[in-house]
Computed example of a mutant assay.
Amino acid sequence: MAEFVLVAGAWLGSSAWDEVVAPLRSAGHGTHPLTLSGLAEKQGVPAGQQTHVQDIVDEIERGDLHDVVLVGHSYAGIPVGQAAERIGERLSRVVFVDSEVPVDGGSFASGWWQGQAAFEAQIADNNGYWAPLGAADFDGQGLTDEQVARLIEGSTPHPGATLTEPAVLTRPLGELPATYVKCLLDGPEPNDTVAKLLTSDHWRLVTMDTGHWPMFSQPTELARILLAEAA
């Protein structure tokens, strides 16, 4: 049986996975939804990029977990990708859910579509945090009003340093056993970095006909995909 370590993207804590956890547990797997430092119930805890990487590694080592399927959504793909390298033989597979992926020496901010300076200005204007989204920002993402309300209720400001500090990779990410889940309502194609990684024999692509937050919009389907990746 696999041990699923589940890490949600910016603004969100472990509760984002509530509707995904149940079918994974019903299938007999271990589930470890994780809240990263500075978010949700851990608000106020100082956090940089490497803090989040260590949060994930610590969760796995503290529980002495093996056969780990490490799942990172959105922003969390960056610390998850780094942690996947660091846990060695404990890793079974890493699953990137419509996520960013780490680039050695790069950050979430350095890949921002409007440019790094524009993103860092947002952080500076919000006292060092990335402000959560509003209801209108979820339009077109396949979410019901109730699901949007849950998302907003579960969101807290995201520590800016985790988004601006660089990732550190010790070997090519394409060497990891990985699956990339592309959510088509958020864009039909993976970004260029992911597309290049998908040329590796160790990586495979799965698509979902939903938006960027499938743990809310299609949790049962996402759980089915994760179960298939653990097989």
Rank of each mutant, 00 (worst) to 15 (best):
A22G: 03
L39F: 01
G44N: 10
T164H: 11
F4V: 05
V68Q: 10
L12Q: 15
V68C: 05
E120W: 03
Q147Y: 00
V5A: 14
D192T: 10
A161M: 12
N191D: 15
G13C: 05
G128L: 08
A131L: 13
G134W: 00
G72E: 02
I60V: 13
R224Q: 14
L143C: 00
Y129G: 01
I123Y: 02
A149G: 01
G63E: 06
P188S: 14
V97P: 11
T193Q: 14
G115L: 09
P157W: 06
L222F: 10
V103P: 01
R224F: 00
P23S: 08
Y129M: 13
W113A: 14
S107W: 07
L176I: 11
T199E: 14
L24Y: 02
G142Y: 07
V181P: 10
T179Q: 02
A2Y: 04
A83P: 09
A124D: 08
T170K: 06
S14D: 14
F108Y: 15
E165W: 07
P177F: 10
L197Y: 10
D125Q: 15
G38N: 06
S26Q: 13
T51N: 04
L6M: 13
Q122N: 11
L70S: 12
V80Q: 08
T220N: 13
T51H: 06
A167V: 01
G44T: 11
Y129V: 09
G211E: 06
G38Y: 00
N126E: 07
Q116N: 03
H212A: 07
V148K: 02
P102C: 08
P219K: 05
I225R: 12
S26W: 02
F96M: 12
T199A: 11
M208A: 13
E146V: 01
T156Y: 01
H158G: 02
G106K: 09
W112S: 02
